[in-house]
Computed example of a mutant assay.
Amino acid sequence: MSNALTIASLPTVDSGSVDSLDRYLRVIKTFPVLTAEEEHDYATRLKTTGDLDAAKGLIMSHLRLVASIARGYSGYGLPQADLIQEGNIGLMKAVRRFDPDRGVRLVSFAIHWIKAEIHEYIVRNWRLVKVATTKAQRKLFFNLRSMKQGSGSLQPDEVAHIARELKVKPEEVLEMEARMGGHEISLEGDSDDDSESHFSPIAYLPDPAAEPSQWLAEQQSEQSQMDGLANALDSLDERSRRIVQARWLHEGSGATLHDLAAEFGVSAERIRQIEQKAMQKMKSMIATA
Score class of each variant (00 low, 15 high):
S200G: 01
A36H: 11
L233K: 06
M282K: 06
Q273S: 09
G181K: 11
T30C: 01
R64Y: 10
E184K: 09
Q137S: 08
R124Y: 12
A136C: 04
R164W: 01
N3P: 01
E263K: 08
V173W: 00
E171I: 06
A116V: 06
S17H: 00
M226Y: 10
H183F: 12
K29G: 02
P206M: 07
R26K: 14
I122C: 07
R26V: 02
S68P: 02
E86C: 09
P11H: 07
G72C: 00
R96Y: 10
K29M: 00
A217Y: 02
D53T: 09
S74H: 03
T6V: 11
L78W: 00
L233G: 07
Y73M: 02
R179Y: 13
T6L: 15
G228T: 09
T256N: 03
Y73C: 01
M92T: 09
S191P: 06
E177V: 00
L205Q: 06
E165Q: 15
L58V: 04
E120P: 08
A55W: 07
L260R: 05
R179D: 05
A163F: 07
T12Q: 10
M282Y: 07
K130C: 08
I286H: 02
V266D: 09
R127T: 15
E196I: 08
K56M: 12
I202T: 04
M92C: 09
D237Y: 05
Q85I: 01
I118V: 14
A232R: 05
K135A: 14
Q137N: 04
M176G: 07
E177L: 00
M60Y: 15
T133M: 05
E172G: 02
L229C: 10
I271H: 04
I7G: 03
A116Y: 01
R124N: 14
L205Y: 05
E117Y: 11
A110H: 06
K167P: 01
E117V: 03
S253N: 12
G50L: 04
T35E: 14
Y42N: 11
V27N: 08
F199H: 11
W113H: 15
G72A: 02
D14L: 00
L34N: 13
M226W: 10
F199V: 10
A209S: 09
F264K: 04
L91A: 03
L91Q: 02
S235K: 10
G90T: 04
E120R: 15
E38I: 01
E165W: 00
D234T: 12
I271N: 06
Q80S: 13
M226R: 15
E37F: 01
R241E: 09
V123A: 13
P11S: 07
P212M: 12
I89Q: 06
I59G: 03
A178Y: 04
P156G: 07
S9D: 14
Y121D: 01
P206W: 05
R241Y: 06
Y204T: 09
A268N: 14
L187H: 04
K281N: 09
L46D: 10
R164A: 14
L34C: 11
I114P: 12
Y24W: 09
I69D: 02
I274V: 15
A70Y: 00
G103L: 09
A262F: 06
P100V: 06
E172T: 15
Q245V: 13
D190N: 14
S68G: 14
D101V: 02
R272Y: 10
S20R: 00
G57D: 01
M282H: 08
